[in-house]
Design a protein around this nucleic acid. Structure first.
Lengths: 235, 235
DNA sequence: CCGCAGCTGTCAAAAAGCTGTCGTAGATCT
DNA sequence: AGATCTACGACAGCTTTTTGACAGCTGCGG
């Protein structure tokens, strides 16, 4: 039983017959500092899994040859206990997949938001790292976000965020003190293929500010002509 | 996990000729921090038992070679007193098994719910730990659940819960203060293979709330767009 | 002091969640 | 065995929350 440590790069295998999607995921993962490879078919996936020894697998259920379940079976049959996160279309199979989260594996419905996928991968990795895994808590100045309890506090004031607000804030906090463009935020937090041509990001940031900058000094800063950062008052 | 204290890892051997089921159980156990291995036949089970020295065994009755009872006999014949939890199909043999569960053994009918199986394993382990074993009591604020007597109290008011309500509540309490999605609850509390397409979880939560939040402050909180938690209301 | 990026109020549609009602099936009692 | 009771979950109506389009306003930077 491999033991997954944070010290080494996480090894991710992405299996999806749609190359753009597979690449999207792989790219984001690499950007996180992970080592990622992609497979576009079940056979290829099995071959790559055997030689690459991934720590975690993202697996589309609809593959041209062997289907997702088949791949899973054969992975397990080969004695690999590598955790798997499934991707499925909104319809149909979702039910069948649902049963799989039990094992600690997880699943996500297409189209998904990249940050959501990454969050799940991190969670699954954290859990599979064995017992006594610690809570994941993000901090920026006196702002705190507990990813397990979904509790967000500014100082000791508890904040109530909507799902979208939560996701945007998490992304900002994760990347802090890096400045993110609105496009990056849109691409990571909203489902890929989102049609929102309007000012959604500004809108959500505005709402976030009202909730969290109400008390104390502003934490979310606008970088005019570029994007947003969250950090303790800069320069 | 907050409510489970044990210094050494529990060693679990899962014996089932259906690999997905065996893996399911093993994976869930590992997530509890246990050490788990699987066997897909009676012979393999006996071999593994000899070298692995499990603390507890999950044993399917219908095996290709030696049947479950045979495995049990040979285990006992070898002088092992390791407690066994049997898995059986809904029909037939159930009665015979009942007779065989002497001592600390137990059995469960397929398809089972993961949380139910884990609960039984914990109970059997606790009992087999010798005399003066400790009661298992879960507490969240003034809510108390005794897993041995199945007694649930809010303050000193005794609550009467249906089986499903009890299971959902137990799962929530065990994981408290982590927020659980409806899918997680469904997957852990309902039998595997349940095609829950409706709002069962919401329904049970609704009924639970009526029973336990009637007195005092609400304990089960909705995290809109995500799931449910049970915990003392955070300020 | 101008212009444009950014901010925010308003609103309606859609999503998510809650709960009452009811039929079925299994358990329990007589 | 038959009658009765209980638990469960399908379904549907209703309420609340969230979201994003739109549009007008603000204020920064030059």
């Amino acid at each position: 039983m491999p033991h997954y440590e944070r010290v080494e790069k996480v090894r991710l295998l992405v299996v999806d017959d749609d190359p753009p999607i597979a690449d999207l995921v792989a790219t984001v993962a690499r950007y996180e500092g992970w080592q990622a490879i992609t497979a576009n078919s079940g056979e290829e996936a099995l071959r790559l899994a055997a030689e690459f020894h991934p720590d975690i697998v993202v697996l589309d259920l609809m593959l041209p040859d062997v289907d997702g379940f088949g791949v899973l079976d054969r992975l397990r049959g080969a004695g690999t206990m590598v955790p798997v996160v499934f991707l499925t279309a909104r319809d149909g199979v979702a039910d069948r997949v649902a049963g799989l989260t039990r094992g600690g594996d997880d699943y996500l419905v297409k189209p998904f938001a990249v940050e959501e996928l990454m969050a799940r991968l991190r969670t699954v990795l954290r859990r599979s790292a064995g017992p006594g895994f610690q809570r994941s808590v993000l901090r920026v100045a006196d702002l705190m976000m507990d990813e397990d309890t979904r509790e967000v506090r500014r100082g000791d004031k508890l904040l109530t965020l909507t799902p979208t607000e939560y996701e945007v804030l998490r992304y900002l906090m994760r990347k802090s003190p890096t400045v993110l463009t609105k496009a990056q935020i849109l691409d990571h937090v909203w489902e890929y293929g989102f049609g929102g041509r309007s000012n959604v990001v500004e809108l959500v940031v505005s709402r976030l500010r009202r909730k969290l900058d109400d008390t104390g000094t502003p934490l979310i800063h606008t970088v005019r002509g570029f994007g947003y950062v969250i950090r303790q008052a800069a320069e």
